[in-house]
């Protein structure tokens, strides 16, 4: 877990505004330093406008820093010719599954990425089948995307990135438009890819519960990283999290109000602590 994959060096980004817009533009990112190691599961939290999506889009050279540098696998995103090479390493999944599916058949869509890379047809077939199996969509490979549920569509999008065999998957609020079932499907898929295939995951979200299982959580506010650590470290600092306009997970909140010393993350842990509080009698 020590190999550096993505490195932000003092990155600032300012969105270009209309000229008549006289208000001075606020930087979306303001001097961000961040290192993501190989195999890591990183969760980026923040309320709307905190710069978390901008951060995600910087990871694969879709946006170039106004100031500072983003280095992906040794390549700077500032160099024009690196763009394509970087996007071969870092795949991206967006919030709205409808706007990222290109083909009218599931398997054709998954094949889109490798086709663009010029992979051999038989190899594309193999990768597509493998990717669809990994996200548990193989049985639906001949379906039309508009007949799928949101969670299924989002898993197709993930398979599309997998088939490109990128080292990193960046997910920009992948569950924001999904129902609870779809959200669970997508989350467990992402975790499986991280654990079983060793793919580095950077997931932007504003659901605290989704950050609980990450290796590392960063909290962003006004374009800066304010908290950085394991979920337990971050959520133990309830006051700091709340000052960024976010909440800690419900279980954490409950237990801290009950006066439990340990930082509780999951419902299961909360149950254990509450049983302890009741003196072991339920």
């Amino acid at each position: 877990m020590s190999e550096k994959l993505i490195e932000f060096r003092n990155v600032t980004y300012i969105y270009e505004t209309d000229e008549e817009d006289e208000a001075p533009s606020v930087p979306a990112l303001d001097g961000v330093n961040l290192t993501v190691s190989k195999g890591e599961f990183l969760c980026v939290l923040g309320h709307n406008g905190s710069g978390k999506s901008t951060l995600a889009k910087m990871c694969n050279a879709i946006l170039e820093p106004t100031d500072g540098e983003v280095i992906v696998a040794g390549m700077s995103t500032k160099e024009e010719e690196n763009g394509d090479l970087i996007r071969r390493k870092v795949g991206m999944v967006f919030q709205n599954p409808d706007n990222q599916i290109v083909a009218t058949i599931v398997e054709d869509d998954v094949a889109f990425g490798p086709e663009n890379l010029g992979v051999e047809p038989s190899e594309i077939r193999r990768r597509v089948d493998e990717a669809l199996k990994a996200v548990n969509m193989y049985d639906l490979r001949l379906r039309q995307p508009h007949n799928l549920s949101g969670g299924q569509k989002q898993r197709v999008a993930i398979a599309g990135v997998l088939a490109m065999q990128t080292e990193v998957i960046v997910l920009d609020e992948p569950t924001a438009m999904l129902d609870p079932v779809g959200r669970q499907e997508v989350l467990s898929t992402i975790h499986k890819l991280n654990k079983e295939l060793g793919i580095t995951v950077i997931m932007v979200t504003h659901f605290m519960e989704e950050a609980v299982d990450a290796d590392r959580v960063i909290v962003m506010n006004a374009g800066r990283i304010v908290l950085d650590g394991t979920p337990r470290e971050v959520f133990s600092n309830t006051a700091a999290v709340k000052s960024c306009g976010l909440d800690v997970p419900q279980s954490t909140e409950l237990c801290s109000r009950l006066g439990v010393k340990r930082t509780v993350l999951t419902a299961q842990e909360a149950v254990e602590e509450i049983i302890k509080l009741c003196g072991g009698v339920v």
Partner: peptide, 8 residues
């Protein structure tokens, strides 16, 4: 955007 990300 998404197509660019998939190296199109």
């Amino acid at each position: 955007f998404a197509m660019t990300c998939r190296c199109y």
